[in-house]
Simulated scan of single mutants.
Amino acid sequence: MRGLGELEAAVMDVLWSAPGTRTVREVLTELSSSRKLAYTTVMTVLDNLHRKGRVTREMDQRAYRYAPATSREEAVARALRELIDSSGDPRSVLMHFVRSASPDESDTIREALDGVDHPSDER
């Protein structure tokens, strides 16, 4: 995901897939099946994600419990918005995207646009 390193993205995947909050140890356990990591590495990644506003944390006895600050869908939408804004030609990017959309995706886009109030719509 845009703005996240590989390990940060893996940690976010664990948090998005988990119901509720997770400790560093629980995140480490989830990640251990695919890679060998130190506890302090995961702790540092979670601390960095907290500093970036990507996760929230609350103290539970002597350990923090972490949760995503936004849903996966909101994070992807934000990343898409950043890409569109940085493209230099947002209209062209959106036109290419819409042309590549499947029929179901096109229906979803139409539904979303039908529910959007634009300032120019106000009379």
Score class of each variant (00 low, 15 high):
residue 91 R to F: 00
residue 47 D to F: 04
residue 66 Y to D: 05
residue 121 D to N: 12
residue 97 F to K: 01
residue 35 R to G: 12
residue 63 A to I: 13
residue 83 L to P: 00
residue 76 V to I: 07
residue 54 R to S: 07
residue 117 D to R: 08
residue 32 S to K: 08
residue 31 L to D: 06
residue 8 E to C: 14
residue 112 A to C: 09
residue 112 A to S: 06
residue 99 R to H: 14
residue 50 H to P: 11
residue 96 H to D: 07
residue 32 S to V: 13
residue 34 S to D: 08
residue 108 T to P: 04
residue 120 S to I: 05
residue 34 S to M: 13
residue 46 L to T: 04
residue 79 A to N: 04
residue 11 V to P: 02
residue 14 V to E: 06
residue 1 M to F: 10
residue 89 D to H: 07
residue 88 G to Q: 08
residue 59 M to N: 13
residue 48 N to P: 10
residue 48 N to I: 07
residue 1 M to A: 13
residue 107 D to P: 02
residue 45 V to Q: 12
residue 117 D to F: 10
residue 31 L to W: 05
residue 59 M to A: 14
residue 26 E to W: 01
residue 85 D to T: 09
residue 101 A to G: 09
residue 11 V to I: 03
residue 108 T to N: 04
residue 122 E to Q: 14
residue 19 P to I: 09
residue 9 A to V: 11
residue 30 E to T: 08
residue 54 R to G: 07
residue 84 I to P: 01
residue 29 T to F: 12
residue 83 L to V: 00
residue 87 S to P: 06
residue 73 E to Y: 14
residue 110 R to N: 06
residue 4 L to H: 10
residue 94 L to T: 00
residue 66 Y to A: 08
residue 2 R to W: 07
residue 111 E to Y: 14
residue 112 A to L: 09
residue 96 H to R: 07
residue 18 A to D: 01
residue 65 R to K: 07
residue 57 R to L: 11
residue 25 R to M: 01
residue 94 L to F: 00
residue 40 T to G: 12
residue 119 P to K: 03
residue 46 L to C: 05
residue 21 T to F: 01
residue 53 G to A: 10
residue 101 A to K: 05
residue 26 E to L: 03
residue 43 M to H: 14
residue 106 S to D: 13
residue 112 A to Y: 06
residue 76 V to F: 08
residue 13 D to K: 06
residue 58 E to D: 13
residue 68 P to H: 12
residue 89 D to K: 04
residue 29 T to K: 07
residue 32 S to G: 04
residue 102 S to H: 11
residue 15 L to T: 07
residue 61 Q to E: 15
residue 120 S to P: 04
residue 67 A to M: 12
residue 35 R to Q: 09
residue 71 S to P: 10
residue 76 V to P: 01
residue 60 D to K: 10
residue 12 M to V: 14
residue 35 R to V: 12
residue 46 L to F: 07
residue 115 G to T: 11
residue 28 L to T: 03
residue 43 M to Y: 15
residue 83 L to R: 00
residue 3 G to R: 15
residue 99 R to D: 02
residue 52 K to R: 02
residue 24 V to A: 03
residue 37 L to W: 11
residue 105 E to Q: 11
residue 109 I to Y: 12
residue 59 M to H: 15
residue 23 T to P: 06
residue 97 F to E: 00
residue 75 A to D: 14
residue 8 E to G: 05
residue 38 A to I: 09
residue 96 H to E: 06
residue 120 S to V: 04
residue 39 Y to M: 10
residue 29 T to Y: 11
residue 57 R to D: 11
residue 82 E to S: 02
residue 97 F to T: 01
residue 63 A to Y: 04
residue 112 A to N: 12
residue 37 L to K: 04
residue 57 R to I: 03
residue 81 R to W: 03
residue 81 R to C: 02
residue 68 P to K: 10
residue 74 E to Y: 02
residue 117 D to S: 12
residue 18 A to G: 08
residue 63 A to H: 11
residue 21 T to M: 00
residue 10 A to H: 08
residue 53 G to I: 09
residue 69 A to K: 07
residue 31 L to H: 05
residue 41 T to L: 12
residue 57 R to F: 05
residue 98 V to P: 02
residue 31 L to N: 03
residue 9 A to L: 04
residue 89 D to S: 01
